[in-house]
């Protein structure tokens, strides 16, 4: 087992184990500093972002919507965490020179060609479906996959099986046809 990948990244075992330590440190820090244990997650922030954007055109509608009321539209701990992910990935990729401007990923290109438009539609439509699913299931691979599994939550185990089970099936249909 190597500690570094060919392109200067870290072994996924090492980076993952460090993320495990970060998850522990994070629940401790939120409990101690904020008075409430918070677990790593990402998808609720997309609801808050949608609420903040909708507030600029239809403030009354956001106030009257039960889901926005339940979620509380505001820039909170998790919102800043999600913004931090962009920064952290930027710092890391700049440091080891793996930062690349990419408009169409290689696997997509092999299957659907170099069109940015096609990729944009795929990402957009996939994004809508995935987020409706994540909000219905009440979590994504961060909230369910990492945080929920670490707590031995029943719902997270079932959600993770569904994420990967259906994901494997749909990926096979969408990308499986290319000659490998």
């Amino acid at each position: 087992m190597k500690w570094k990948t060919e392109d200067g990244g870290w072994s996924p075992y090492l980076a993952g184990a460090l993320l495990g330590l970060l998850a522990i440190a994070s629940v401790l820090a939120t409990t101690q500093l904020l008075g409430k244990t918070s677990y790593l997650g990402a998808s609720t922030t997309f609801v808050r972002a949608a609420g903040i954007l909708e507030q600029t055109i239809a403030a009354d509608h956001v106030v009257s919507n039960a889901y926005f009321t339940k979620t509380k539209v505001r820039v909170d701990w998790q919102f800043m965490l999600v913004i931090g992910i962009v920064l952290g990935a930027f710092i890391s990729s700049t440091m080891d020179k793996s930062f690349r401007l990419e408009s169409v990923p290689p696997t997509w290109k092999e299957r659907f060609g170099p069109s940015i438009g096609k990729r944009a539609v795929g990402a957009f439509v996939g994004g809508i479906i995935a987020m409706i699913g994540a909000r219905l299931a009440d979590g994504c691979p961060s909230g369910h996959g990492l945080s929920g599994m670490m707590q031995l939550s029943v719902s997270s185990f079932v959600a993770l099986v569904m994420f990967f089970g259906v994901g494997v099936l749909v990926a096979r249909i969408v990308y499986g046809r290319r000659a490998s």
Binding site: W108, A123, G126, G127, A130, G133, G165, V168, V170
Partner: peptide, 10 residues
């Protein structure tokens, strides 16, 4: 739904 959307979006 998440699994399906994830596989399309990547």
């Amino acid at each position: 739904l998440f699994g399906a959307g994830w596989a399309i979006m990547g």
